[in-house]
Design a binder for these strands. Structure first.
Length: 632
RNA sequence: GCGCUCGUAGCUCAGCGGAUAGAGCACCAGCUUGCGGAGCUGGGGGUCGGAGGUUCGAAUCCUCUCGAGCGCGCCA
């Protein structure tokens, strides 16, 4: 916010200097960046404009810096000093009174302080969690749940329209779901579950709830047991503060005939066919194509279970290699059943309807799915090939391309479609979480088939944190800690989740450090009210202590952090920001006494600063899905 | 073999083109006749895995290399 203001000042100053003839016209094109210096001795904020621009301006950086410093330095309302340092840095020391003025605008905006207005509003569908309905939400999926939900909050705060979606993998043809149903059925009939079946206690629980279906058809049991599982997942996720606007059933696409219809569409677009070969692309290091081969279709695979008993027919191939995938994918099996990827085509088309007129899809996937990015991109490219603008490349087909494409025109259309897909679909992969106990990794899947469920993690932590709390308080405490821990680390790197630290005494716990700051602010404000003191913006100019200025600058950063996070999806930045903001407050609190009845003007200004901090803290915690307690 | 991700303080991790690389934990030394000490202040501790390159400037970008994790089904 303060940064935005300074960037505007720079733009104005540069325009003045151009019309005065001190800077060439090209100065307008130089990118302007204002940042906080790492070293506080270098001032409150700084810009590298002179160094970045020196080349295009044809001037040496220090000369540019001097001209700019002269122009800006005259604005004594804003700047206490403008210094040139090093190779051409421009270091700004801001006038504390000017900085303090921003407290008023935070208070004016209140909760909307964290709401941004983007240059362009995107309509984004975010799909996350989406695990099979054959078990509880695990602690592994917990990371995706925390990440996806926080990402949605941030995108919304950044001003975009967001649709939260869960894709239920409930295709009746799914091997895994059938196996799950068979396991439940076996338990219902008092038989042993199949060798490769599901053996956890939760399977027995599902069976217990379905006593009335004893002796029923497998299909009936399959439907009922997956519904039970979905309900359990939904409840667990709600406790974890994860909610979806849509729970989308894969099977519903089959039932509506959408999958079949879309497959027909692909065939008529000549991106899917029944020719009996699979194309494979082998790449050498650096992604250069080493070879493209058409493999004759192998018919020797005997592992297939021919569940439908419909006998053999031609395999239907999606020619995904035309869109950068490393091999063609099967849409319809030899036995006539459609594959998972076939529903994916229909599904990705459908997703653009939520929100209406969707402009972007984000899919959050687990660490075992990064091989899936190329496939998904190809799916979207194939589906929307008519929407995309072909690339303009007149060069003839290479030797490799001749195997993939019929002619130059087709290649250019496919390349265009691939670019379109990359533009409209973003896949975010989160990496694995290792849960550490006694310094050793704790198994997520136990030998007896039991799974470490997210809800158990939440309850364990809650029990430890609030042994005397209500059920509701325990769930909240557990969820707060778990969410913050998941979100502290960059989702794209493997992390260790220290179960002892999370469940142990609270004083080592970063979550509580932040929540404590919020509770402390609330307490200070309460205390002030008891002495007849209240926040006011009438004397903000009194906030000139270094700790006060630092805190205000930190509060002002929130909007920048949100904007940045909405564009690079690195939600962990906000968890770190929350810690920094809390630290700035604690440090301020320690030095600057807020409530001083003998000095009501300073008190009112500091209370205003407390209010502004509370607003910012409350906002970040809200984005992270962590509660901001008034007392603890 | 190919692809993705990661190697930063004793440990867990930030930083991802800027000036002397940061925080928490652990360790050491301090702060309270006052608003919540679940707090604050200070200190020690690093050839940012290694080697080249790009440029005014690299932990950050590129190439190679070593090491770790994961992924490459007519499973989902």
């Amino acid at each position: 916010m303060i940064r935005e203001a300074l960037e505007k000042k720079l733009v104005t100053a540069i325009a003045e200097l151009i019309s005065a003839g001190s800077l060439p016209e090209t100065a307008r094109t130089v990118r302007i960046e204002v940042d906080a210096p790492k070293n506080p001795d270098h001032g409150d904020l700084m810009t590298n404009f002179a160094m970045v621009g020196s080349k295009t301006l044809g001037m040496n950086p220090r000369a540019v810096a001097e001209i700019l410093a002269g122009e800006l330095g005259s604005d004594t309302e804003v700047f206490a000093s403008v210094e040139i340092a090093g190779p051409g840095f421009l270091n700004f020391r801001l006038n504390p009174a000017w900085v303090a003025g921003f407290v008023a605008s935070v208070l004016e905006r209140g909760v909307s302080y964290s709401h941004l207005t983007p240059d362009q509003v995107e309509k984004i569908n975010v799909e996350f969690v989406s695990v099979n309905p054959n078990g509880p939400i695990t602690i592994g999926s917990g990371r995706g749940a925390a990440y996806g939900s926080a990402l949605c909050n941030v995108l919304e705060a950044a001003g975009h329209e967001v649709h939260r979606e869960y894709y239920i993998n409930d295709g009746v043809n799914s091997e895994q779901m059938r196996l799950f149903a068979e396991s439940v059925k076996a338990l219902l009939n008092g038989q042993a579950v199949p060798d490769n079946g599901y053996k956890g206690d939760y399977v027995q629980e599902v069976a217990n709830g379905l006593e009335h279906l004893k002796g029923a058809e497998l299909a009936t049991i399959q439907k009922a047991s997956q519904d039970a599982m979905i309900e359990a997942q939904r409840t667990a996720l709600e406790h974890f503060r994860v909610n979806f606007a849509t729970w989308f059933s894969e099977q519903s696409l089959h039932d509506a005939g959408e999958v079949a219809r879309v497959i027909g569409e692909l065939e008529s677009k000549h991106v899917a066919d029944e020719s009996p070969f699979r194309t494979k692309i082998e790449t050498a290091k650096g992604g250069v194509i080493k070879s493209v081969t058409k493999e004759d279709q192998a018919v020797t695979n005997t592992d297939d279970e021919d569940a439908s008993g419909e006998g053999e027919q031609a395999t239907l191939w999606l020619r995904s290699t035309k869109f950068g995938d490393d091999q063609d994918r099967v849409l319809r099996r030899r036995d006539g059943r459609l594959t998972y990827i076939a529903s994916d085509v229909a599904y990705h088309k459908d997703k653009f309807n939520r929100p209406a007129g969707g402009t972007k899809l984000i899919t959050v996937l687990g660490p075992d799915h990064h091989g899936y990015i190329g496939r998904l991109t190809a799916v979207v490219a194939a589906m929307f090939i008519d929407q995309a603008t072909p690339v303009d490349d007149p060069t003839p087909l290479t030797e490799h391309e001749e195997i993939l494409f019929g002619n130059v025109e087709e290649r250019n259309r496919c390349r265009g479609a691939q670019a379109w897909a990359k533009d409209h679909l973003t896949v975010q992969i989160f990496q694995i979480v290792r849960f550490m106990k006694d310094g050793k990794p704790a198994p997520m899947r136990k030998r007896d088939g039991n799974i470490y469920a997210l809800i158990d993690l939440i309850k364990e932590i809650g029990e430890e944190m609030r042994p005397n709390g209500t059920e509701e308080e325990k769930l909240q405490a557990g969820s707060d800690v778990a969410r913050f821990f998941y979100l502290m680390r960059n989702h794209d790197t493997a992390m260790d989740f220290d179960l002892e630290l999370a469940t142990k005494q609270s004083d080592e716990n970063p979550v509580f450090y932040v929540q404590y700051a919020h509770a402390r602010i609330c307490s200070v404000i309460r205390k002030g009210a008891e002495s007849g003191l209240a926040a006011s913006t009438a004397h903000l100019g009194l906030l000139d202590h270094a700790k006060e200025t630092t805190l205000i600058l930190k509060i002002a950063e929130l909007r920048d952090e949100i904007a940045q996070t909405a564009s690079d999806y690195a939600v962990n930045r906000l968890a770190n920001y929350a810690l920094e903001l809390a630290r700035s407050y604690h440090s301020f609190y320690d030095t600057c006494r807020v409530n001083q009845p003998e000095n009501p003007e300073l008190s009112s200004a500091r209370l205003a600063l407390c209010e502004a901090t509370r607003t910012a803290l409350h906002s970040v915690l809200g984005l992270l899905g962590v509660s901001a307690p008034q007392e603890m």
